[in-house]
Design a protein around this nucleic acid. Structure first.
Length: 235
DNA sequence: AAGAACATCAACCGCAGAGTC
DNA sequence: CGACTCTGCGGTTGATGTTCT
């Protein structure tokens, strides 16, 4: 059934109409906008065109080595959360990252996995140790919380743990390593370093349990890239 | 030179979550 | 509280360009 809406590739004239409309009136309602902008497109199509192609700060062209490494790293942490990955690559879109992944990087990880499987298989043949028997160390504090999403029970555990640490830090029943272990289990990102325990306890608590916009990877990025031994500004 | 095979990427589709009435 | 709308996300498709035979 025809809706009268145009589909397929965008013409230069359509691009111009959309750009000039948004420049003048901003983005207010994607579903209504095409009508006022004089476009026979769906709002969805307009939004996509703007977000993936016309937005002024978009970076086009080849992905750099650094960007490629970031994608690989973030994908290993986040999986197919393309928008979350793209959010950490200035000027790149989720669609662009997704396309790049499927075109360039997927095969890299497939090859790595293949090699890893072959290695495991070889090891299994050579010794009695089985890959299945390998277990991650479990933190006695968290009893093995492994999700980066924090549950109420983990919040309770954290509060209890924090009180214990605060009350007894002078006596040392709960150690710095225990705390590190706790966060490592909760938010298992590489290079997450704790250098000043007193500063970080409540900052992390706020990030994880009280800030609904908590984003573990942003925290990860902030605490590694920006961290120079001093406390970061509050979010 | 021509056509087949493959690679790339813009665009579409369906779904889910958030917001509003 | 349910229905509806809007927005954004991830998977997929299809057009186009490039390389190979």
């Amino acid at each position: 059934m025809s809706t009268g809406l145009k589909r397929g590739s965008w013409s230069a004239e359509e691009d111009e109409k959309l750009i000039s409309y948004i420049k003048r009136y901003g983005i207010w309602n994607w579903s209504q906008m095409p009508k006022f902008a004089g476009l026979s497109r769906s709002g969805k199509s307009c939004r996509l065109r703007w977000m993936n192609f016309l937005k002024p700060d978009l970076k086009k062209g080849e992905f750099s080595k650094e960007e490629e490494e970031s994608i690989l790293h973030l994908h290993s942490l986040l999986g197919n959360k393309w928008s979350a990955i793209a959010a950490r690559l200035p000027g790149r879109t989720d669609n662009g990252v997704k396309n790049y992944w499927h075109a360039h990087l997927k095969k890299c990880t497939c090859e790595q996995n293949l090699r890893a499987c072959q290695t495991v298989e070889q090891d299994n043949n050579n010794s009695s140790s089985s890959f299945d028997n390998i277990q991650e160390p479990t933190c006695p504090i968290t009893n093995g919380i492994s999700s980066s999403r924090c549950t109420t029970s983990s919040e309770d555990q954290w509060l209890e743990f924090r009180d214990n640490y605060t009350d007894t830090s002078s006596q040392g029943t709960t150690t710095f390593d225990d705390l590190h272990c706790f966060w490592d289990q909760l938010c298992p990102f590489e290079n997450l370093e704790f250098r000043n325990i007193n500063h970080h306890i409540d900052t992390f608590y706020g990030h994880v349990f009280q800030d609904s916009n908590y984003d573990p990877i942003s925290s990860y990025t902030s605490y590694t890239d920006d961290y120079n031994g001093s406390l970061l500004p509050d979010p």
